[in-house]
Simulated scan of single mutants.
Amino acid sequence: MMETSVIVEKVDDFLIEEFEVEADEIAPEANLKETLDLDSLDYVDLVVAIEATFGVKLVGDDFVGVESFQDFYDLIERKVNI
Rank of each mutant, 00 (worst) to 15 (best):
F63Q: 13
Q70W: 13
E29C: 04
V6H: 00
N31Y: 07
E18F: 05
F63S: 11
K79T: 15
E20Y: 05
Q70H: 06
L38S: 03
D71T: 10
S40F: 12
V80C: 01
V80M: 05
L36H: 00
V6P: 04
F19C: 03
D37K: 04
V44R: 10
E3V: 12
M2L: 14
L75Y: 00
E3K: 09
M1A: 12
V48L: 13
D45H: 11
E17G: 01
F72M: 09
V21A: 00
D45M: 14
D62N: 03
E20V: 14
I16P: 05
A30Q: 11
V56M: 03
M2I: 03
L41F: 13
V80Q: 05
S68I: 09
E77N: 04
D62A: 02
V6L: 09
E29P: 03
D13F: 00
L58H: 05
A30T: 11
L75A: 10
M1I: 15
K10V: 10
E22M: 10
V64R: 07
E20L: 09
S5V: 06
V56Y: 00
T53W: 07
Q70Y: 13
A27F: 09
D71A: 15
D74I: 02
L15R: 08
G60R: 15
D37F: 01
K79E: 01
A27S: 10
L58N: 14
I82L: 11
T35W: 05
D39I: 00
L41P: 03
L36P: 07
F19V: 11
I7R: 00
D71V: 08
E17M: 03
R78T: 06
R78D: 08
T35F: 09
L46N: 08
T35A: 02
M1W: 07
